[in-house]
Design a protein around this nucleic acid. Structure first.
Lengths: 194, 194
DNA sequence: TGTATTTACCTAAAGGGTTTAGGCAAATAC
DNA sequence: GTATTTGCCTAAACCCTTTAGGTAAATACA
């Protein structure tokens, strides 16, 4: 009965690695117990339940992503910053698909509010300081950028762009070009036609 | 032992309803059997396995969505068409969150190729006929639109935009405005800076 | 350094989902 | 009206989750 030294943190870390290997949906308390060569019930001293595990993995991923984002944004502005943050998400998803999926987990509102998720919103807003947008357009733009990053990375990772020319790297570059052009030239509201 | 009249189609349909009620992830062969007041094993004459069920629900959702898209695009072009297709996705996700989640299921390549998924790509391309884009820019734009629609609807539905002004309807309108402006003014490739 | 307490992992068991094998009765064919 | 097919059944194995209660290792402290 040698003690293994389990902690919620180590379990979340190992869970994140497991997620990258087998997919976030395949992460189970049982599989994690196997990985530590320990009985399943033992994990329940450190974890409330299966959801608790998944939440911890999600929080870990959000934090890693925010750290990478902050590092990438340091000293950059405008389109440079835009491209850098976009690359952070895209590269992270390719390196750590399981963690990236975890970061998409729907968290309880209070959990989300206390998570690194808020740093993500702040970073996107920081990028927009390099463009000439005031409220409420800035919020619209934050939401648009979030949508594009999430949607693009999800589709590319899921194979939605596969086996078709041109390659996805080229599209990615052009999407960043397009977003930059759009932000520099943000349109006024159109007049409702009815 | 009265016969209930199960068929793969009825099961997929009921599964779709179940998904909207309890969430796509909560759809299980067991729950579906309960709904038909039938033993679980009975469903396995009509379904290969749990994955088969989920795939059928996904295909059903993709088809419904494509049908709605086609109806919405009929007789429209340009920004009108763009807004109409976007609304189709957004409204469908709100009316049928479980089905919408199902439509996001990663399908096996051959399954995807034979699904209504291809009609979706065609519809997006059809919209771009109202703008002055040639290949490969058209493909870049198709991918961008797909990303925005997927990302926006996912975030809005997941509560990612909640409790913050301005409201999401306004942002949605402005996002469509922005995409229209972008497509009318699609930027040439930028010169790599290194 | 020896004893008391806490802590970490264990066994056992119940409950639910998935899936296969084999049986019987209802529908259908002729 | 009999033969065949088909549809739903029982039974059982396997895996994951979660709780209850036990034992041994680590720690506290005299």
């Amino acid at each position: 009965m040698a003690r293994v030294g389990l902690t919620p943190e180590r379990l979340a870390q190992a869970g994140a690695e497991l997620a990258d290997e087998v997919g976030f949906d395949e992460v189970t308390v049982s599989a994690l117990a196997r990985r530590f060569d320990v009985k399943v019930a033992s994990l329940y001293s450190h974890l409330k339940n299966s959801d608790d595990l998944k939440t911890r993995i999600a929080l870990l991923a959000l934090e890693e992503l925010a750290d990478r984002g902050a590092a990438a944004l340091a000293g950059r502005a405008g389109k440079d910053a835009l491209a850098a943050l976009g690359d952070v998400y895209r590269d992270y998803a390719r390196e750590h698909p399981g963690r990236y999926a975890a970061a998409q987990l729907r968290l309880a509102p209070e959990t989300a509010a206390a998570s690194a998720g808020v740093r993500h919103a702040q970073m996107t807003r920081a990028i927009l300081r390099g463009y000439d947008l005031t409220e409420p357009d800035q919020t619209h733009a934050v939401r648009l950028l979030g949508s594009v990053f999430l949607g693009y990375v999800t589709l590319e990772l899921g194979g939605g762009f596969s086996h078709s020319a041109p390659d996805t790297q080229e599209t990615w570059t052009r999407v960043i070009d397009a977003l930059d052009a759009l932000l520099r030239n943000w349109p006024a509201p159109s007049i409702p036609s009815d």
